[in-house]
Design a protein around this nucleic acid. Structure first.
Lengths: 168, 168
DNA sequence: GCAATGTTTCAATTTATTTTGAAAGTTTAA
DNA sequence: TTAAACTTTCAAAATAAATTGAAACATTGC
């Protein structure tokens, strides 16, 4: 396998992985392309390399910038905008965790809090079972939240060792 | 909010959360329904409560069983099959982690290993950059794998230790 | 065996998501 | 100010994913 094939393969696989995790394929592919690119790329180059329309490229690049995974780069003497990706995979993982926590875990916790306050006979077996189930999920969400905060704040070096300790 | 409303709300939210993580909405909703159900439910009951077809219910229940999140329950004197969900949220989380690791992380690692072996001039800046990027991702994946194994094992230990306590 | 009850499959349909591309908007340099 | 270069938007079209439902298949009890 040569470099060009390898890059294409990586972009392909990263796209599939992304789509299995609720990230659209093109967004993941653009990210992959920028990760393995030697230099920042323009919209034109992304369009060409991935065979994707201008609108699609623009929207997904904007989304990637929004997630903090991609940066606009100004190259002097050039009129066009260039884009480059965060290449430190630890940072990438941290950014994604942070974004997903904010967008998905936090809203879920909000709902769970509302659900803890149901009216009804506290002696009723059904009410008790429900309250307990929700309570456990909240407890879990709380732990997950703390763990994520730890990871996000942690320095790369003691990152995993401290993470693992949480479960010992 | 009363119990019925709260259950509906929970099922709704769990469904949305699932779909953001690449799990189909109905599958997540069936799981949620079974988690908050006081008793094991039949296909009929699931169909009715979620307004979903028989085929859809059957397929998603099967998938949940496949993930280890739901069990078939035989109730004596009853002809029908009943289904009940794992209610321990930690176990649910580890089961999901295990399945996703197996289905998504492992294949990605396999691809990454192939990509490390590209042909080409080792002095070429482009080749060097690519190899390094892939190397970092592999390192990350390796760490993630180890961490997941630790979590999953920790959970097993917890399971067995509490199981043993039952006989003390 | 066979009818009743229950489960599974899958082609067709519906629904949801992604993508396109042309038009509108913006910035730049002369 | 103007026009060329470039970016953004969004309604419509294409694509992908989930869902239906009726038919096929399986199991049970008589």
């Amino acid at each position: 396998m040569n470099l060009t094939e390898a890059k294409a393969q990586f972009i392909q696989s990263w796209g599939i992985l992304g789509s299995q995790w609720g990230i659209n394929r093109t967004m993941a592919q653009i990210h992959a392309l920028l990760v393995v690119a030697a230099k920042p790329l323009t919209t034109e180059e992304i369009m060409e390399q991935l065979s994707v329309s201008r609108g699609n490229t623009n929207m997904n690049v904007r989304e990637l910038i929004d997630w903090g995974l991609v940066d606009k780069v100004i190259i002097k003497g050039e009129r066009k905008e260039f884009f480059s990706a965060e290449k430190d995979i630890w940072k990438v993982a941290t950014l994604i965790m942070y974004q997903r926590k904010k967008r998905e875990l936090d809203p879920m916790v909000k709902v769970l809090n509302q659900l803890s306050e149901i009216e009804g006979d506290k002696e009723d077996e059904n009410v008790k079972a429900f309250t307990e189930a929700i309570g456990n999920i909240k407890k879990f969400a709380g732990q997950a939240e703390k763990t994520l905060d730890t990871i996000i704040k942690a320095e790369e070096n003691w990152f995993w060792s401290s993470f693992i300790k949480l479960f010992k």
